[in-house]
Design a protein around this nucleic acid. Structure first.
Lengths: 145, 145
DNA sequence: ATCAAAATATTGACAAAGTCCAGAATATCT
DNA sequence: AGATATTCTGGACTTTGTCAATATTTTGAT
């Protein structure tokens, strides 16, 4: 199982270290995880790892497109290992839950603006904002609707 | 000219204060402005205003939908007074410039996911990522393409 | 296996963006 | 005008993330 992760690192020209494996595993197993939660998981796995190592690894992995950053409003940066399929996100305004939503088109950029203003566009990121079922139910209880 | 801004505040049930007027004017006149820049403008206009008052005003105005927040990666939160037309944004990955792009559909949500997973969706936010003309030119110079 | 060079991790200080708190000041409504 | 609700001020604090110097580990060639 580590073999798979190690290979992914090596294939992208990165040294294989226990720290990076722990970070990559944490992100792979927990979609939309925050840096802080990665730190907790990695510390549990390795006994000790510095906060800086977490950020270094996350940034390196993101640069090499092994993982992807998402930065919803009002929440710290999150990371996911699902890359290359240009899917989108559905986020609850109340509790911040994030869901994956498949892109109808598949390849990036799946959408183009009416006027690109000379920009060279490589990605159209779509975030659907709303209320998740749980938060809807809770709001309804308060309203006694 | 202040009349207009004051009315907008009152119509949304907010007290009219010099601080809020200054903040609202700053955002109205400078699309995609940061909180920090708002502070500078407001201080220039009023002589003195606290950072806290800026954040209070920005948050209140955003809550009441008088202004809107945008949070591009790698840049502090930005604010714009153009609300209600559900337009989108075009952001340069290199220099962070932000442009407005009209939404082809017009009304929010202009787009719906293939599967809403029980969410009640009220907005589809689209961010186009790319390179602005200036950054393209600079990259080309380095490559001598 | 071993060693040197390059890459990576550790530690601790630091920075930016924003929030919390308690008391003072101000606007609105009657 | 006066009562009351709201807002402003100033400073401490939190969160998220980066910088820099030093130590350690990984890798590839002996």
């Amino acid at each position: 199982m580590n073999k798979d992760l190690s290979d992914r690192l090596r294939r992208h020209g990165l040294h294989v270290t226990a720290q990076r494996l722990a970070v990559l595993r944490a992100v792979s197993e927990h979609p939309h995880i925050t840096a802080d939660a990665v730190l907790d998981l990695a510390q549990a796995e390795l006994g000790a790892i510095s906060r800086q190592a977490i950020y270094d690894a996350l940034n390196t992995l993101a640069d090499k497109n092994l993982i992807r950053r998402i930065q919803p409003m009002g929440s710290p940066t999150r990371y996911e290992a699902r890359v290359g399929d240009n899917h989108h996100h559905l986020i609850c305004r109340i509790c911040g839950r994030v869901e994956d939503v498949d892109c109808a088109v598949g390849a990036a950029p799946c959408l183009m603006p009416s006027d690109a203003m000379g920009y060279e566009i490589d990605e159209a990121e779509v975030i659907y904002w709303g209320r998740c079922p749980a938060c809807q139910a809770q709001a309804d209880m308060h309203n006694q609707t």
